[in-house]
């Protein structure tokens, strides 16, 4: 009975896994197939394997757009959002979890309230504001609004509140101030939550489309999602190129995820994050 149950569980997991991996396989296979082949195979199972391996689509991508430029923009913008965000949000989470200061609880409730406001709701006033500051068409306009993140603060808060307080108190008594306690004692013991927040922020921001579309017009500061959009709007519509672009765009996320996977999983478990 035990074996049958295990078999059924594994079978269902396998099927779900296949369901998730199919579009990715389809994308990779399509990126290696000449355009004519992509259309010919579309709609059938043979779309899952390439008709003939060719790197033409990848060459086309590089010929049609400045892929490396867009990639740099995306990496720079996301790197800054993740890097500076980790610093700012972890410090905020720590201040909410551990430090005693006037108005802390009220401010924390406000931060939690911000969690439910989607970007789309504030995009237009935010757009007016950054226009007023003359920030349009810059990297900063794509970075600054996303550094402080209520969800990240909340994740850090829940992790820090669960850490043994005595460890910090010991550090304080041993002679460390608040900041030193934070980066000598707290940060090294909070790698899982840092990894989780980094990966989650990167995942969310990597595909950002609406905000960059609103605030940028020049190719020199635009990220990858806006570049892929040009493939839809500029004829001829070549699916092979779009697939190749997609593969190249998804690769950094996969690398990042695989790199941080052990910590990420631990972080998700310990922070009590749910999908």
């Amino acid at each position: 009975m035990g074996y049958v149950k295990a078999f059924l569980i594994y079978l269902s997991l396998l099927l779900i896994g296949l369901l998730f991996i199919t579009p990715i396989v389809f994308m990779i296979s399509g990126s290696l197939t000449p355009d004519a082949g992509v259309f010919a195979q579309a709609g059938g199972w043979d779309a899952l394997w390439s008709a003939g391996v060719s790197l033409d689509n990848y060459r086309d991508v590089f010929a049609r757009v400045d892929f490396m430029g867009y990639l740099f923009n995306s990496l720079f913008i996301n790197g800054m959002i993740v890097g500076v965000g980790l610093l700012v949000n972890s410090l905020a989470g720590y201040a909410f979890a551990r430090l005693q200061w006037y108005g802390r609880n009220l401010l924390f409730k406000l931060v939690l309230a911000v969690l439910i406001i989607p970007l789309e709701a504030i995009a237009v006033p935010l757009f007016y504001m950054v226009s007023l500051f003359g920030w349009r068409d810059t990297y900063w306009v794509q970075i600054l609004p996303f550094i402080a993140n209520a969800f990240s603060i909340y994740l850090f808060y829940t992790f820090f509140i669960g850490m043994p307080r005595e460890m910090e108190e010991a550090a304080r008594i041993d002679g460390a101030g608040v900041l030193r306690t934070f980066y000598c004692i707290i940060v090294p013991n909070a790698k899982p939550v840092f990894a989780s927040v980094a990966v989650l922020t990167f995942l969310t921001q990597w595909g950002a489309f609406l905000w960059p579309l609103m605030v940028t017009s020049g190719e020199d500061v635009r990220p990858l999602p806006l570049a892929i959009a040009t493939f839809y709007s500029l004829p001829p519509l070549q699916w092979g190129d779009i697939f190749a672009f997609g593969v190249m765009m998804v690769t950094p996320i996969l690398v990042l995820f695989l790199l941080f996977q052990p910590w990420f999983v631990r972080g998700v478990v310990t922070s009590g994050i749910k999908g």
Binding site: E166, E169, A170, D174, C184, I185, P188, N189
Partner: peptide, 30 residues
């Protein structure tokens, strides 16, 4: 005075050792 300026040392019930440091680093931290 904050704790670090009182020249005191404390042993906690759950030891409160720094888990990411070796024994040497723990002893060396203060």
């Amino acid at each position: 005075s904050p704790p670090q300026h009182r020249d005191i040392a404390m042993v906690f019930q759950n030891y409160a050792l720094y888990p990411h440091m070796t024994v040497r680093d723990n002893l060396e931290f203060p």
